[in-house]
Amino acid sequence: MKRNLAQVVLSTVALLIVLSAFLPDTDGGFSGIVKSADSYFPIWFSIIAVFAFVLGASSLIGSHVRKIKDRETDWQYSVVTVLSFAIVLIVGLAKLGGASGLEGDVSDPASVLGRIFSSVLSPLHATLFSLLAFYMASAAFRSFRIRSLETTVLLVSASIIIIGRLPFASKLFSFLPDALQWLRPDKLSLWMLLVPNTAGQRAVLITVSLGVIAVALKYILGMSRDMFGGQK
């Protein structure tokens, strides 16, 4: 019974959202009701997500407090986590350094929370993200090792793109006659980006969109009840 009710809610909400894509943009009538409902659903989801965050936070604190109590391996990191959590929570809730009360902006850059964000979190983000440069190089190196026809194609095309993106790429092979100018790396790399790459990206996008539609229809039509904690 509970699962049937959940399925009815899911199908009704999903059909309203799908329907809103086909209805004209008007304020009144059935179309207006559907359109306004469609705009409310994301807000409802955000409200539910806020409640779910309490679950997540309690799970996080619970697991780390347990680690500290049991003196598990690397429990010292858990102390840092719990302390950081408590400090940021108190600073944020009290809106220290900024305007207090309900009107006070929690993300005010002048507040203590804002300063924690810009002086601690942002540099940490940047540090972690900078690792991408090294990871990209190591991943590219592994991919370019010639092991099969596919990796050879990858190596050749990547080499053309790299050479073609160089500042002096247009000067390279400029000695070629006019009929063979298309072989210049800058032109070849541009062609590879605009033609085969765009075609491949679009093929993936089209099939992904169809996959999303198929998965969504599976749940809307009630063909799978995995969502509700069990098989049909």
């Binding site: 099939t207 992904v208 169809l210 996959g211 198929a214 599976k218 063909m223 995995d226």
Partner: peptide, 25 residues
Amino acid sequence: IGEEFFAASAMLSGNQEDIAMLQGL
């Protein structure tokens, strides 16, 4: 890659309904 990911989850579940999804895809 792409829709292979959706297809794989349906294939691996082995449910008839999920296989019907592949036919729709």
